Amino acid sequence: MKSSNEQAISGKQNGLISLGEQVTWQAKHFGIPFKMTSKITFMEAPTLFIDEMISGPFIKLHHQHLFKTKGTQTDMTDVFEFHAPFGILGEIAEQLFLKRYMEMLLIERNCFIKAEAEHNHK
């Protein structure tokens, strides 16, 4: 993801990730470098997997990826929950800009995943 210079720096860095595996991401958001490690905590292939932050900038980050096949296409739905640190200041940041920022980040990532999946499917 070019906008945040996001890249996997340890753990599973290519191919499909499986239950129990983890990946550490490095990125820059709001001009600040971040590292976050996520682990696949639940998998019910091919319809669902959940990744959760085990270390990183949030108090909590829980991300469900739901897949539903419709003919020859697949729909993916994200259920994304996070909580910012810093108590009431974090809650205010979530309301003012962080929820929208995270939503746009998911949209950008999903566009990238879709393009890669369609390119590799040909």
Results as ranks from 00 to 15, higher is better:
residue 44 E to M: 15
residue 7 Q to G: 07
residue 13 Q to R: 08
residue 13 Q to Y: 12
residue 99 K to A: 10
residue 67 F to I: 00
residue 24 T to I: 01
residue 75 D to I: 13
residue 55 S to C: 06
residue 96 L to N: 03
residue 87 G to F: 01
residue 112 F to S: 09
residue 100 R to V: 06
residue 82 F to M: 08
residue 47 T to N: 07
residue 62 H to G: 07
residue 117 A to W: 07
residue 68 K to T: 08
residue 43 M to W: 05
residue 16 L to V: 11
residue 4 S to W: 09
residue 122 K to P: 15
residue 121 H to P: 02
residue 53 M to E: 04
residue 40 I to N: 05
residue 43 M to I: 10
residue 49 F to Q: 05
residue 61 L to P: 00
residue 21 E to W: 09
residue 83 H to Y: 15
residue 43 M to N: 14
residue 49 F to W: 12
residue 15 G to H: 02
residue 118 E to K: 11
residue 3 S to E: 12
residue 120 N to F: 12
residue 45 A to K: 12
residue 102 M to H: 00
residue 6 E to K: 07
residue 80 F to A: 09
residue 15 G to Q: 02
residue 37 T to A: 02
residue 19 L to H: 05
residue 26 Q to E: 14
residue 49 F to M: 09
residue 44 E to H: 15
residue 20 G to N: 02
residue 117 A to F: 12
residue 17 I to A: 13
residue 71 G to K: 05
residue 21 E to T: 07
residue 97 F to D: 13
residue 104 M to K: 15
residue 35 K to R: 10
residue 74 T to K: 00
residue 72 T to I: 08
residue 108 E to P: 04
residue 34 F to G: 03
residue 122 K to W: 07
residue 74 T to Y: 00
residue 109 R to V: 08
residue 50 I to F: 11
residue 80 F to H: 07
residue 69 T to G: 15
residue 119 H to F: 14
residue 102 M to D: 00
residue 52 E to S: 10
residue 76 M to V: 06
residue 57 P to W: 03
residue 23 V to R: 14
residue 78 D to P: 05
residue 37 T to W: 01
residue 84 A to M: 14
residue 57 P to G: 05
residue 57 P to I: 02
residue 20 G to E: 03
residue 63 H to Y: 03
residue 47 T to W: 04
residue 111 C to W: 11
residue 39 K to T: 08
residue 98 L to A: 06
residue 2 K to R: 12
residue 120 N to H: 13
residue 77 T to L: 09
residue 72 T to L: 14
residue 62 H to T: 14
residue 66 L to R: 08
residue 9 I to H: 02
residue 15 G to Y: 01
residue 91 E to H: 12
residue 111 C to E: 09
residue 71 G to S: 06
residue 59 I to C: 04
residue 97 F to K: 11
residue 90 G to F: 00
residue 106 L to Y: 01
residue 33 P to M: 15
residue 38 S to V: 12
residue 4 S to Q: 08
residue 35 K to Y: 05
residue 42 F to Q: 11
residue 25 W to D: 03
residue 7 Q to C: 11
residue 52 E to K: 07
residue 82 F to Q: 02
residue 45 A to F: 08
residue 53 M to T: 02
residue 92 I to K: 15
residue 109 R to T: 13
residue 29 H to N: 15
residue 90 G to H: 01
residue 95 Q to H: 10
residue 31 G to R: 11
residue 48 L to K: 03
residue 87 G to Y: 00
residue 46 P to C: 07
residue 41 T to M: 06
residue 69 T to E: 07
residue 27 A to G: 06
residue 61 L to K: 02
residue 105 L to T: 13
residue 71 G to E: 03
residue 91 E to A: 06
residue 18 S to V: 14
residue 85 P to C: 05
residue 41 T to F: 04
residue 6 E to G: 10
residue 122 K to G: 15
residue 91 E to K: 09
residue 122 K to V: 08
